[in-house]
Design a binder for these strands. Structure first.
Length: 213
DNA sequence: CGGAAGATCTTCT
DNA sequence: GAAGATCTTCCGG
């Protein structure tokens, strides 16, 4: 028989821990995104930890700015940024407050609302690709900067919530270098994913884009 | 399948 | 002014 995933919300305390503890613990948890079109539920299969102001790969490394403001706020809130001229990516802020650490949600399996997700991800060739990659994940869920700062762990039915789901046993969690991170930040093996899961995105090392003539 | 290049624009230097 | 926590399409093997 199949264990029903736990639909209770994750607590603030869950996120109020060091980001390297929270990141692997987020695998198997469920993110629910609700809009007027209906709900989408996503089971997280791949994340990356960004260790706040100590981490050269982190948006918070060079201090507080208008963009990363939310990272310096309370844990359990959502940090959304815009990148490469057309994509959004989402993070969950971790503790302690002011450390500005966060977990980038890189990939997941859509377990509810796949029909709706497909309408936002027309280029996806199959359902495994709907949220395979951080920008794809945000696109599938209809997440943009208007959700920056949203509290993801309230008991109320907000547009974005984290539920307990079913944590992945540590022997099924793999880790390695972060994708697309350049310079000194690339050395940390702070990308975590579920072993043998087809929704995990392929690893790509950072490549500086060639300058246009 | 793998590599190259384009798309597109905010953010910080 | 340059680079970016990316994705898609196009091309060659």
């Amino acid at each position: 028989m199949i264990a029903t995933p736990d639909r209770t919300p994750l607590s603030r305390e869950f996120f109020d821990r060091p980001v390297l503890d929270v990141a692997p613990d987020l695998l198997g948890r469920i993110l629910v995104r609700t809009t007027s079109d209906g709900p989408i539920a996503l089971r997280l299969t791949e994340v990356e930890a960004y260790d706040g102001s100590d981490d050269p790969g982190s948006h918070a490394y060079r201090g507080r700015t208008a963009r990363n403001e939310v990272m310096f706020g309370p844990p359990g809130h959502v940090y959304v940024y815009f990148t490469y001229g057309m994509w959004f990516c989402m993070n969950l802020v971790c503790g302690p407050e002011d450390k500005a650490s966060a977990v980038l949600l890189r990939a997941g399996e859509i377990i509810e609302g796949a029909e709706l997700a497909r309408t936002r991800r027309l280029s996806a060739r199959n359902d495994k690709e709907l949220a395979k990659g951080p920008a794809r994940l945000a696109t599938a869920l209809g997440v943009d900067r208007s959700l920056d700062g949203t509290d993801a762990c309230t008991p109320e039915d907000t547009p974005l919530r984290m539920l307990a789901g079913s944590p992945v046993p540590s022997d099924q969690v793999l880790n390695g270098p972060r994708t697309g991170v350049s310079g000194d930040g690339a050395v940390h093996p702070w990308r975590f994913w579920v072993a043998d899961d087809a929704t995990v995105s392929p690893y790509r090392a950072h490549v500086p884009r060639r300058r246009r003539s």
